[in-house]
Amino acid sequence: MELRIQGVSKTYANGVQALKRVSLTIPPGMYGLLGPNGAGKSTLMRMLATLQDPDEGSITLGDIDVVAQKDDVRRTLGYLPQEFGVYPKVTAESLLNHFAVLEGVTGGRARREVVEALLRKTNLWDVRKQKLGGFSGGMKQRFGVAVALLGDPRLMIVDEPTAGLDPAERVRFLNLLSELGESSVVLLSTHIVEDVSELCTRMAIIDKGQILLEAEPTAAVEGLGGRIWRRVIDRAELPALEREHPVISTKLLAGQTLVHVYAEASPGHAFEPTRPDLEDVYFATMAGHIGRRAGKTAPAESAP
């Protein structure tokens, strides 16, 4: 079963076009949706989660029409929104139990087992009697995963889950997700490249409502081989360098600036070749060197 998005567009009432004819095909497994803030990720995620309808285009999950058969989708959906709150005065266990009933786990004993398993899995078992109002960000996020996992989802939508988690929480969280990817479609939207590189077998890069690249992370990284060059410079040199070379990213390194440049051949002796990683794929795509933006605009003008 795969998730197929075809020609989906969405314009908001204030005129912002959040999605422009987006088409994607997402097979089972972990799929990363990478893009900067405001790229349209959350709009797409909410559409897949049946909470918004596209202005045009179609979305199907297997043979289910996501737009028209919302109830069928919801029955098989796990959704972890980017932001959510919880009833502060209710305990984790009782709210999860409540949601389990709503998800159709109505048998008393079975429900207890599911709730216990999920609380243990998300490592919330010890705090199950605590009011949710006292949960930390990570605990709350894990509670959200527990809720999302309730219905044995075949489609899991996870919107920016790791933003705001401490490193340990993030590791734990990604572990949880990867387990799921074994059997279901798991769509992970993020602006953190490491999330995708560590987890996903396939990915897409989205910006300004358009898909710029659809690829397997490893293949995409390999595809960049030999075209990424690095150089460490002083901050003051950066403007001049940017004028002369197609800089795709800059990074601070021990007080100096590390610059990555995209070039088919060596841009000069001061540069040294470097092994590309997914971050280079992302920046090269955003800068228009690869993917669908390539060739359409001159790299230097790509960021108005």
Partner: peptide
């Protein structure tokens, strides 16, 4: 309010039972 103690020790692979879910009017 933390449960971080479990982060390294928690197996993360506890199987979650998947009981049959109620459908329809019931």
């Amino acid at each position: 309010p933390t449960a971080d103690a479990g982060i390294t020790s928690g197996s993360g692979s506890t199987p979650v039972p998947q009981p049959t879910r109620a459908m329809g009017a019931r």
